[in-house]
Protein backbone atom coordinates (compact mmCIF):
# COMPACT_ATOMS: atom_id res chain seq x y z
CA UNK A 1 0.00 0.00 0.00
CA UNK A 2 2.77 2.46 0.87
CA UNK A 3 4.16 1.85 -2.55
CA UNK A 4 0.99 3.18 -4.22
CA UNK A 5 0.93 6.17 -1.94
CA UNK A 6 4.47 7.07 -2.85
CA UNK A 7 3.63 6.82 -6.54
CA UNK A 8 0.65 9.11 -6.10
CA UNK A 9 2.88 11.65 -4.45
CA UNK A 10 5.30 11.50 -7.26
CA UNK A 11 2.54 11.95 -9.80
CA UNK A 12 1.26 14.94 -7.89
CA UNK A 13 4.66 16.56 -7.88
CA UNK A 14 5.47 15.91 -11.47
CA UNK A 15 2.39 17.68 -12.77
CA UNK A 16 1.87 20.16 -9.97
CA UNK A 17 -0.25 23.07 -11.22
CA UNK A 18 1.29 24.44 -14.38
CA UNK A 19 -0.70 27.60 -13.74
CA UNK A 20 1.31 28.41 -10.66
CA UNK A 21 4.72 27.73 -12.13
CA UNK A 22 3.67 29.42 -15.39
CA UNK A 23 3.28 32.75 -13.60
CA UNK A 24 7.06 32.93 -13.24
CA UNK A 25 7.85 32.46 -16.91
CA UNK A 26 7.40 35.93 -18.32
CA UNK A 27 7.71 35.01 -22.00
CA UNK A 28 4.69 32.70 -22.07
CA UNK A 29 1.47 34.29 -23.43
CA UNK A 30 -1.40 34.38 -20.94
CA UNK A 31 -3.63 31.32 -21.23
CA UNK A 32 -7.30 31.68 -22.14
CA UNK A 33 -8.30 31.02 -18.55
CA UNK A 34 -6.09 30.95 -15.50
CA UNK A 35 -7.51 30.29 -12.07
CA UNK A 36 -4.95 31.13 -9.45
CA UNK A 37 -5.15 30.03 -5.84
CA UNK A 38 -8.90 30.68 -5.56
CA UNK A 39 -10.69 30.21 -2.25
CA UNK A 40 -14.48 30.30 -2.01
CA UNK A 41 -16.49 30.69 1.18
CA UNK A 42 -20.26 30.16 1.30
CA UNK A 43 -22.40 32.08 3.76
CA UNK A 44 -19.23 33.58 5.26
CA UNK A 45 -18.51 30.33 7.12
CA UNK A 46 -18.27 27.33 4.83
CA UNK A 47 -14.94 26.98 3.10
CA UNK A 48 -15.77 25.13 -0.13
CA UNK A 49 -12.56 25.34 -2.16
CA UNK A 50 -9.17 26.01 -0.69
CA UNK A 51 -6.69 27.54 -3.08
CA UNK A 52 -7.56 25.99 -6.42
CA UNK A 53 -5.35 26.73 -9.40
CA UNK A 54 -5.92 25.53 -12.93
CA UNK A 55 -5.49 26.60 -16.52
CA UNK A 56 -7.37 26.16 -19.75
CA UNK A 57 -5.24 26.86 -22.84
CA UNK A 58 -6.86 28.18 -26.01
CA UNK A 59 -8.59 25.40 -27.95
CA UNK A 60 -8.16 22.65 -25.35
CA UNK A 61 -10.59 20.35 -23.60
CA UNK A 62 -9.65 20.15 -19.94
CA UNK A 63 -11.37 17.79 -17.51
CA UNK A 64 -12.00 18.59 -13.86
CA UNK A 65 -12.64 15.35 -12.03
CA UNK A 66 -13.58 14.42 -8.52
CA UNK A 67 -16.30 12.93 -6.41
CA UNK A 68 -19.39 14.58 -4.95
CA UNK A 69 -18.64 17.63 -2.86
CA UNK A 70 -15.05 17.93 -4.01
CA UNK A 71 -15.67 21.53 -5.08
CA UNK A 72 -15.85 21.13 -8.84
CA UNK A 73 -19.10 23.04 -9.33
CA UNK A 74 -17.93 25.76 -6.97
CA UNK A 75 -14.77 26.15 -9.04
CA UNK A 76 -16.86 26.54 -12.21
CA UNK A 77 -19.10 29.10 -10.56
CA UNK A 78 -16.09 31.07 -9.40
CA UNK A 79 -15.08 31.21 -13.06
CA UNK A 80 -18.52 32.16 -14.41
CA UNK A 81 -19.36 34.46 -11.49
CA UNK A 82 -22.50 32.62 -10.43
CA UNK A 83 -21.61 32.30 -6.74
CA UNK A 84 -23.65 35.33 -5.71
CA UNK A 85 -27.15 33.83 -5.64
CA UNK A 86 -25.83 30.99 -3.48
CA UNK A 87 -24.17 33.43 -1.15
CA UNK A 88 -20.71 32.31 -2.06
CA UNK A 89 -17.75 34.62 -2.35
CA UNK A 90 -14.26 34.42 -3.78
CA UNK A 91 -12.22 35.41 -0.76
CA UNK A 92 -8.75 34.80 -2.15
CA UNK A 93 -7.04 34.35 -5.46
CA UNK A 94 -7.78 35.53 -8.98
CA UNK A 95 -9.56 34.37 -12.11
CA UNK A 96 -7.87 35.68 -15.22
CA UNK A 97 -9.23 35.72 -18.77
CA UNK A 98 -6.45 36.18 -21.34
CA UNK A 99 -4.48 37.80 -18.53
CA UNK A 100 -7.26 40.20 -17.49
CA UNK A 101 -8.50 39.90 -13.91
CA UNK A 102 -12.22 39.06 -14.02
CA UNK A 103 -12.65 37.86 -10.44
CA UNK A 104 -15.23 40.55 -9.60
CA UNK A 105 -17.00 40.86 -12.97
CA UNK A 106 -20.78 40.29 -13.21
CA UNK A 107 -21.90 37.06 -14.90
CA UNK A 108 -23.43 38.76 -17.98
CA UNK A 109 -20.19 40.70 -18.46
CA UNK A 110 -18.25 37.42 -18.40
CA UNK A 111 -20.64 35.90 -20.92
CA UNK A 112 -19.91 38.83 -23.22
CA UNK A 113 -16.19 38.17 -22.82
CA UNK A 114 -16.81 34.61 -24.00
CA UNK A 115 -17.38 32.42 -20.95
CA UNK A 116 -20.58 30.36 -21.02
CA UNK A 117 -21.54 27.91 -18.34
CA UNK A 118 -23.85 24.94 -18.78
CA UNK A 119 -25.26 24.45 -15.31
CA UNK A 120 -25.47 21.17 -13.50
CA UNK A 121 -28.91 19.61 -13.90
CA UNK A 122 -29.36 21.35 -17.27
CA UNK A 123 -31.69 24.10 -16.02
CA UNK A 124 -33.41 24.75 -19.36
CA UNK A 125 -36.16 27.38 -19.36
CA UNK A 126 -38.91 24.83 -18.91
CA UNK A 127 -41.87 26.90 -20.02
CA UNK A 128 -40.22 28.19 -23.14
CA UNK A 129 -39.84 26.20 -26.34
CA UNK A 130 -36.33 25.10 -27.33
CA UNK A 131 -36.29 27.82 -29.96
CA UNK A 132 -37.26 30.45 -27.37
CA UNK A 133 -34.61 29.06 -25.04
CA UNK A 134 -32.03 29.73 -27.73
CA UNK A 135 -33.37 33.20 -28.51
CA UNK A 136 -33.44 34.13 -24.82
CA UNK A 137 -29.78 33.15 -24.60
CA UNK A 138 -28.92 35.38 -27.57
CA UNK A 139 -29.33 38.53 -25.45
CA UNK A 140 -25.60 39.41 -25.62
CA UNK A 141 -25.71 39.29 -29.46
CA UNK A 142 -26.81 42.56 -31.00
CA UNK A 143 -27.45 41.55 -34.59
CA UNK A 144 -30.76 39.78 -35.32
CA UNK A 145 -29.45 38.05 -38.46
CA UNK A 146 -26.50 36.67 -36.50
CA UNK A 147 -28.98 35.29 -33.96
CA UNK A 148 -30.77 33.35 -36.71
CA UNK A 149 -27.45 31.97 -37.96
CA UNK A 150 -26.53 30.87 -34.45
CA UNK A 151 -29.90 29.16 -33.94
CA UNK A 152 -29.30 27.34 -37.23
CA UNK A 153 -25.82 26.32 -36.11
CA UNK A 154 -27.20 24.85 -32.90
CA UNK A 155 -29.81 22.93 -34.88
CA UNK A 156 -27.04 21.60 -37.12
CA UNK A 157 -25.17 20.24 -34.11
CA UNK A 158 -28.32 18.96 -32.44
CA UNK A 159 -30.87 17.96 -35.13
CA UNK A 160 -33.05 16.53 -32.39
CA UNK A 161 -33.66 20.03 -31.04
CA UNK A 162 -34.89 21.15 -34.45
CA UNK A 163 -37.45 18.35 -34.47
CA UNK A 164 -38.71 19.40 -31.06
CA UNK A 165 -38.30 23.14 -31.45
CA UNK A 166 -41.95 23.93 -30.68
CA UNK A 167 -42.48 21.66 -27.68
CA UNK A 168 -42.12 23.03 -24.17
CA UNK A 169 -38.55 22.48 -23.07
CA UNK A 170 -39.73 21.07 -19.76
CA UNK A 171 -41.18 18.09 -21.58
CA UNK A 172 -38.00 17.17 -23.48
CA UNK A 173 -36.11 14.07 -22.44
CA UNK A 174 -33.06 14.39 -20.23
CA UNK A 175 -30.70 13.99 -23.18
CA UNK A 176 -32.56 16.54 -25.26
CA UNK A 177 -32.50 18.98 -22.36
CA UNK A 178 -28.76 18.53 -22.03
CA UNK A 179 -28.38 19.21 -25.75
CA UNK A 180 -30.54 22.30 -25.36
CA UNK A 181 -28.48 23.49 -22.40
CA UNK A 182 -25.28 23.15 -24.43
CA UNK A 183 -26.87 24.72 -27.51
CA UNK A 184 -28.14 27.59 -25.40
CA UNK A 185 -24.65 28.25 -24.10
CA UNK A 186 -23.39 28.40 -27.70
CA UNK A 187 -25.79 31.24 -28.52
CA UNK A 188 -23.50 33.82 -26.93
CA UNK A 189 -20.61 32.76 -29.22
CA UNK A 190 -18.43 31.67 -26.29
CA UNK A 191 -14.70 31.02 -26.46
CA UNK A 192 -14.85 28.83 -23.36
CA UNK A 193 -17.60 26.41 -22.49
CA UNK A 194 -17.91 25.37 -18.84
CA UNK A 195 -19.77 22.07 -18.73
CA UNK A 196 -21.01 20.93 -15.34
CA UNK A 197 -21.74 17.19 -15.26
CA UNK A 198 -23.28 16.82 -18.71
CA UNK A 199 -23.49 13.05 -18.23
CA UNK A 200 -25.63 13.30 -15.09
CA UNK A 201 -28.56 10.89 -15.26
CA UNK A 202 -28.11 10.02 -18.93
CA UNK A 203 -27.83 6.65 -20.61
CA UNK A 204 -24.25 5.75 -21.64
CA UNK A 205 -25.17 5.87 -25.34
CA UNK A 206 -26.39 9.43 -24.94
CA UNK A 207 -23.37 10.44 -22.92
CA UNK A 208 -21.18 9.21 -25.76
CA UNK A 209 -23.25 11.09 -28.34
CA UNK A 210 -23.14 14.33 -26.38
CA UNK A 211 -19.42 14.08 -25.72
CA UNK A 212 -18.83 13.45 -29.42
CA UNK A 213 -20.74 16.61 -30.27
CA UNK A 214 -18.82 18.57 -27.64
CA UNK A 215 -15.62 17.36 -29.27
CA UNK A 216 -16.88 18.50 -32.68
CA UNK A 217 -17.81 21.91 -31.30
CA UNK A 218 -14.34 22.15 -29.82
CA UNK A 219 -12.66 21.32 -33.11
CA UNK A 220 -14.95 23.12 -35.56
CA UNK A 221 -15.72 26.27 -33.57
CA UNK A 222 -12.43 26.44 -31.69
CA UNK A 223 -14.31 26.65 -28.41
CA UNK A 224 -12.25 25.59 -25.41
CA UNK A 225 -13.98 23.39 -22.88
CA UNK A 226 -13.62 22.94 -19.15
CA UNK A 227 -15.47 19.75 -18.40
CA UNK A 228 -16.54 18.88 -14.88
CA UNK A 229 -17.35 15.20 -14.54
CA UNK A 230 -17.79 12.38 -12.10
CA UNK A 231 -17.70 10.06 -15.06
CA UNK A 232 -13.90 10.15 -15.25
CA UNK A 233 -13.57 7.62 -18.02
CA UNK A 234 -15.80 9.50 -20.46
CA UNK A 235 -14.18 12.80 -19.55
CA UNK A 236 -10.58 11.60 -19.92
CA UNK A 237 -11.46 10.10 -23.29
CA UNK A 238 -12.22 13.52 -24.77
CA UNK A 239 -9.96 15.74 -22.67
CA UNK A 240 -6.28 16.38 -23.28
CA UNK A 241 -5.47 17.41 -19.72
CA UNK A 242 -7.13 16.72 -16.40
CA UNK A 243 -7.28 17.98 -12.86
CA UNK A 244 -8.44 15.85 -9.96
CA UNK A 245 -10.12 17.58 -7.07
CA UNK A 246 -10.65 16.19 -3.64
CA UNK A 247 -11.89 17.96 -0.58
CA UNK A 248 -11.73 21.45 -2.06
CA UNK A 249 -8.22 21.14 -3.45
CA UNK A 250 -6.58 20.09 -6.68
CA UNK A 251 -5.05 16.81 -5.67
CA UNK A 252 -3.39 15.82 -8.89
CA UNK A 253 -3.17 16.97 -12.47
CA UNK A 254 -1.61 15.87 -15.71
CA UNK A 255 -2.17 14.92 -19.34
CA UNK A 256 -5.22 12.73 -19.76
CA UNK A 257 -3.15 9.71 -20.81
CA UNK A 258 -1.00 9.91 -17.71
CA UNK A 259 -4.01 10.27 -15.41
CA UNK A 260 -5.69 7.30 -17.05
CA UNK A 261 -2.61 5.21 -16.38
CA UNK A 262 -2.33 6.26 -12.74
CA UNK A 263 -3.21 3.28 -10.53
CA UNK A 264 -4.98 5.37 -7.89
CA UNK A 265 -7.18 7.09 -10.43
CA UNK A 266 -7.89 3.73 -11.98
CA UNK A 267 -8.93 2.36 -8.67
CA UNK A 268 -11.06 5.23 -7.39
CA UNK A 269 -12.42 6.88 -10.47
CA UNK A 270 -12.19 4.39 -13.30
CA UNK A 271 -13.41 1.36 -11.39
CA UNK A 272 -10.44 -0.86 -12.22
CA UNK A 273 -7.41 -1.52 -10.08
CA UNK A 274 -6.07 -3.89 -7.52
CA UNK A 275 -9.12 -6.03 -6.97
CA UNK A 276 -10.10 -4.72 -3.58
CA UNK A 277 -13.72 -5.76 -3.24
CA UNK A 278 -14.97 -4.70 0.16
CA UNK A 279 -16.21 -1.11 0.22
CA UNK A 280 -15.14 -0.81 3.82
CA UNK A 281 -11.56 -1.47 2.88
CA UNK A 282 -11.71 1.04 0.10
CA UNK A 283 -13.11 3.67 2.37
CA UNK A 284 -10.53 3.06 5.01
CA UNK A 285 -7.77 3.12 2.48
CA UNK A 286 -9.06 6.32 0.99
CA UNK A 287 -9.30 8.12 4.26
CA UNK A 288 -5.78 7.07 5.14
CA UNK A 289 -4.62 8.30 1.82
CA UNK A 290 -6.20 11.69 2.31
CA UNK A 291 -4.38 12.13 5.60
CA UNK A 292 -1.10 11.22 4.02
CA UNK A 293 -1.50 13.35 0.96
Amino acid sequence: MTDTVARAHEAGKTFANPGVSGAGQAARPAPLLAVHNVEVIYDKVFLAIKGVSLEVPEGAIVALLGSNGAGKSTTLKAISGLLGPERGQVTKGTVRWRGQDITRLSPPARVRLGIAQVLEGRRVFEHLTPEENLIAASTPIGNARRVRELVQMVYDYFPRLYERRNAKAGYLSGGEQQMLAIGRALMAEPRLLLLDEPSLGLAPVLVEEIFRIVQRINQEQGVSVLLVEQNARAALDVASYGYLMEDGRVRMDGPAEVLKANPDIQEFYLGGGAGRTSYRDVKHYRRRKRWLA
Binding site: P107, P108, V111, P140
Partner: peptide, 9 residues
Protein backbone atom coordinates in the same frame (compact mmCIF):
# COMPACT_ATOMS: atom_id res chain seq x y z
CA UNK B 1 -29.58 31.50 -12.27
CA UNK B 2 -29.77 29.94 -15.73
CA UNK B 3 -30.76 33.31 -17.20
CA UNK B 4 -27.77 34.89 -15.57
CA UNK B 5 -25.54 32.09 -16.82
CA UNK B 6 -26.50 32.75 -20.45
CA UNK B 7 -25.84 36.47 -20.18
CA UNK B 8 -29.28 37.94 -19.57
CA UNK B 9 -28.93 40.95 -17.26
Amino acid sequence: LAAWAVGIP
